[in-house]
Amino acid sequence: MDKAANSILYLDGVNVSFDGFKALNALSLIIEPGELRAVIGPNGAGKTTMMDVITGKTRPDTGDVLFAETRDLTRLDEAEIAQLGIGRKFQKPSVFEKLTVAENLALALAGNRRVREALFWRLSTREKARIDELLGIVRLGAQRHMPAARLSHGQKQWLEIGMLLAQDPKLLLVDEPVAGMTDAETETTATLLRSIAGERSVVVVEHDMNFVRELAVKVTVLHEGSVLAEGSLDHVSADHRVIEVYLGR
């Protein structure tokens, strides 16, 4: 367990294969508490599979996945992992379209997730205040009673980030948060993610190099299911193997 010391997320030697295709190949990755990390890589590098493994959607064939030094994530299901404090934002915005913006946030609020409590649950004053606060952070105050289906693409991305924050997670996994956003929105998102880090750990998977540059954090490059390079963006973009992977061979 010492190897995992002082980490919020610890992956070691993780292998996943689908019908002979190795989606993850001895992947190892350590995220420290409060860290903001960008993960980049070409299509099929295993970014989404990595997220699936961390959140319990896919079980690794072999390898260790530890959360907060001790919790073995390979033995838990999605709901248990989420309750531990890992939030995930999907690549395609995934919000509850028929529910209003405020209801979406209320569902995501940290708290007891059992059926019995949910049956007799009322929003407390503190929870209402928290929803108002979140609506302010993701700038959806004016849309609070609107069904989520009617939000624009960018607004849905923001709502999902808001839901992630409402969960009060220790670790956020964010998959392509700025896809479909305008430049101004992208910039605000980068600021938002930077402000979240510190208190929480954030892993951002991204294609958009400008956005990664804007985040100005440590970057991990994935290729064919394992880590190709790690370091600052300038450092990894100088690596000839990374150039080869991105510019073709």
Binding site: T55, K57, D77, E78, A79, E80, A82, Q83, G87, R88, F90, S94, V95, F96, E97, K98, L99, E103, A106, L107, A108, R113, R114, V115, A118, L119, F120, W121, M163, Q167
Partner: peptide, 28 residues
């Protein structure tokens, strides 16, 4: 009309999202 109803609707429209929010979809 209860929160259970909201979770049910959430399951109907985006089951895995509901799971990743920490709800035990099977229980609901």
């Amino acid at each position: 009309r209860s929160r259970v109803g909201a979770v049910m609707t959430a399951i109907r429209d985006a089951e895995s999202r509901t799971r990743f929010l920490g709800y035990r979809v099977e229980a609901f």
